[in-house]
Amino acid sequence: MNIVSKELFQQMVRIRREIHMHPELGYQEENTAGIITEELKRLGIKSTTGIGKTGVVAQINDEGPVVALRADMDALAIQEETGLEFASRTDGVMHACGHDGHVAMLLGAASLLKENLKFGSVLLVFQPAEEGGGGAQKIIESGLLDEAKAIFACHLDRHYKAGKLVVQPGPISAFTDRFDISIRGKGGHAAQPHDAIDAIVVASLIVMSLQTIVSREVNPMYPSIVSVGRIEGGSVPNAIAETAKLTGTIRTTETHIRKQIVSGIKRIANAAGILHNAEVSVEIIEGYPCVINTVEESEIARTAVKNIIGEKALVDGQSASMGGEDFSYYLEKIPGCLVRLGAQKEGLEGIPAHSSTFDFDENALGIGAAFLAETARLTIDRLSQ
């Protein structure tokens, strides 16, 4: 799919593979930032480095309406098992979510805009620490986006083939809250359970009861998830555990459902403690907000897709992803749109993101670069009217 020139496509592939070979965790993306700044320098684009420690923000032109484009930079603590010739050379760290591709696409868009943008200003935001570190907040706190009137980003998505994009207004990702439940009973010998209060029994009751919040309390029209991901308790087989701990995640797309589920978790945990005469405490750790695309910016993004590929490229995502994205922090301050960009690789259709064998179709790079550049151009045109 010849969306960009062969030379630009090859440059994006080279950058993507270089970053892939040298992945870095959140707030450690020193080498990645160096690759970015070198390419921006080659393009004649000035940049500001060290934003939130490792972030980079560059600007094309300094007059007219300001539009921001964002790419995340960080990798994951996963041992790569792809067998690719450009596989990670860093033990225990890999790009398993496509952020290497996001950086390459934004640099490709920078090349297109540097050559073609005649009016307006575009901020190129290379953000650290999306994977749990909330790097978007560091970029916002820098003040460099204060003049931005809109912001856009792409996220590679293995559910769709290259050449397909999901652009929709409203919620497209979930709140990503965490819960920790601590249980204290009374330890004792396993042969005399009547003299003890078994924290593992209490924990087991809570785990099973939590499943009824989504299945029996939440309106099924609202996507929601309550999952216990970790259980700790006990140390030896012949002793009753005095303490236990449950850790899990809550995923919702509506504020009132979020509150309902948090209330339900606390009620169920406390009731189990009363039932078994154990001490139970619940801590809720708020995660990323829900990404809510604004209507006007979503329409601009759809127009951009039609302009570069055609309307047939637009597909209906139907419902929000239950994953999280700190792009949500930008959208609390600036209108914008996060787009899902098809990048399914043949033979890897069933391999999800955050997998040790994750990879994507590099043909998506040209599409993403062209989309970001066209979206910026259209937004500037609209803001200028």
Rank of each mutant, 00 (worst) to 15 (best):
E286C: 10
T303N: 09
T303M: 10
Y288K: 11
E297F: 02
E286T: 15
I268W: 02
P289I: 04
R267E: 00
E299F: 03
A271Q: 09
G273N: 03
S298E: 13
V280D: 03
I274P: 04
V291C: 15
I292W: 13
T294I: 14
V282I: 06
A271S: 10
C290R: 05
E297L: 04
V282M: 06
V295K: 14
A278V: 01
S298F: 07
S298H: 13
R267T: 02
A271Y: 00
V291R: 08
E283A: 15
V291S: 08
A278F: 05
A301L: 08
I268D: 06
H276S: 13
P289V: 02
H276R: 10
R267C: 04
R267V: 01
N293I: 14
V280L: 08
E296F: 13
R267G: 00
G287P: 09
R302V: 06
E279K: 14
V295C: 05
E279M: 11
H276E: 09
L275A: 11
A271V: 06
I292R: 11
E296D: 15
Y288V: 06
N293G: 07
A272K: 04
E296I: 11
Y288G: 07
A269R: 00
E297D: 11
T303Y: 12
V280E: 00
I300K: 12
E279L: 09
P289G: 04
S298D: 09
P289E: 07
C290M: 07
L275I: 02
T303D: 06
E279Y: 08
I284W: 10
A269M: 06
A301D: 14
A278T: 03
